[in-house]
Simulated assay, not measured.
Amino acid sequence: MRKQLVAWTILTSALVAVAVWTVLGPPDHAAGPHLPSRDLTASMR
Score class of each variant (00 low, 15 high):
Leu24Ile: 08
Gly25Leu: 01
Pro27Leu: 11
Pro26Trp: 06
Ser43Pro: 01
Lys3Phe: 13
Ile10Asn: 02
Met1Trp: 11
Ala17Met: 09
Thr41Tyr: 11
His29Trp: 04
Ser13Leu: 12
Pro26Tyr: 04
Leu35Phe: 03
Leu5Cys: 02
Val6Ser: 00
Leu24Ser: 04
Ala30Met: 07
Lys3Cys: 08
Lys3Asp: 12
Pro36Thr: 01
Ala7Asn: 06
Gly25Ile: 01
Ala7Phe: 09
Pro33Ser: 08
Leu15Arg: 03
Leu5Arg: 10
His29Ile: 02
His29Tyr: 06
Leu35Val: 05
Thr9Ala: 06
Ala30Asp: 05
Arg38Lys: 10
Asp28Lys: 11
Val23Arg: 11
Thr41Gln: 14
Val16Glu: 05
Ala42Cys: 07
Leu40Ile: 10
Thr22Arg: 13
Ser43Thr: 13
Thr22Pro: 00
Val6Lys: 00
Asp39Lys: 13
Arg2Gly: 11
Ala31Met: 09
His34Asn: 03
Ser37Ala: 07
Val18Leu: 14
Val23Gly: 05
Ala30Asn: 02
Thr41Phe: 15
Asp28Trp: 02
His34Trp: 07
Ala7Gln: 08
Val23Lys: 12
Ala30His: 04
Ala31His: 06
Ala30Lys: 06
Arg45Val: 15
Leu15His: 02
Gln4Cys: 09
Pro27Thr: 04
Trp8Glu: 13
Leu40Glu: 13
Leu11Trp: 10
Thr22Asn: 09
Ile10Cys: 01
Leu35Asp: 02
Pro36Asn: 00
Asp28Arg: 08
Arg38Gln: 13
Ala42Tyr: 10
Leu35Met: 04
His29Arg: 10
Ala19Asp: 07
Thr12Pro: 00
Ser37Asp: 06
Arg2Cys: 09
Leu24Glu: 09
Pro27Gln: 05
Ile10Glu: 04
Val16Phe: 15
Leu5Ser: 04
Val18Asn: 05
